[in-house]
Amino acid sequence: MLKLKDINKIFNEGTVDEKIALDDIQLELKKGDFVTIIGSNGAGKSTLMNIISGVLIPDEGTVEIDGQVVNNLKEFQRAPLIGRVFQDPMAGTAPAMTIEENLAMAYSRDKKRGLRKGVTKERRILFKESLESLHLGLEDRLTAKVGLLSGGERQALSLLMATFTKPKVLLLDEHTAALDPSRAALITDLTREIVDRSGLTTLMVTHNMQQAIDLGNRLIMMDKGRIILDVDPEQKKTLTIERLLKEFERIRGEKFASDRAVLG
């Protein structure tokens, strides 16, 4: 479903600030795979997400989604294929617009936008039904402005919007990191529920090792722009934080650099 081949990306090439962000990345996700990505700051996780979604263009290599090479497609052109939730709860929704208007925009993601009304009676029923699946009571607040919602509610809505049209690939970029623990747990549960229900091919970046182990069927560890560990579904079932850390020390010969990864 998603195939990355020989991806290289260097920032500020040829200057003193040169940084190799991605170094020869090879990654293939089968349909329905749910892969979690961990790694310390600067490992290249977010760069990888940006390259898949088209915010950044790789220096070398190809990105293939559902058999289609998308290298030359801009972000908005790839968007029908990709659902994305950002770390910032404010980033995924339009605060001055209502809940139903936001959902209408998500609904139009894989269709041509025209002069039809964005929110119609039939669509409103559909919006209500899908909001009910969040168990937050948002279905009764269709005409409330999204700016009035709490961070957790907004992130839940972002998640729903990102998955509304069942994208080929779902990208979750530390989407629970900015929330308090109980809200983060809620969003984590919703993520599991939504991804399971629709069988979405998902790539999730997280700083939280426990979350990375709990969710998904495959785990990848990145460091300094490379994939240094790829845990397959069989091994992942018995994976623990201790074993992950040991694995990291064995490969790198150094301690894992981030306390946040363990404690966060």
């Binding site: 972000e75 908005f76 994305r84 980033a91 339009a94 925009m105």
Partner: peptide
């Protein structure tokens, strides 16, 4: 309207 409100978001919804 979303372009004026949250351009990054509406780009990720194929606008």
């Amino acid at each position: 309207r979303a372009t004026g409100n949250n351009a990054r978001m509406i780009r990720s919804f194929s606008t």
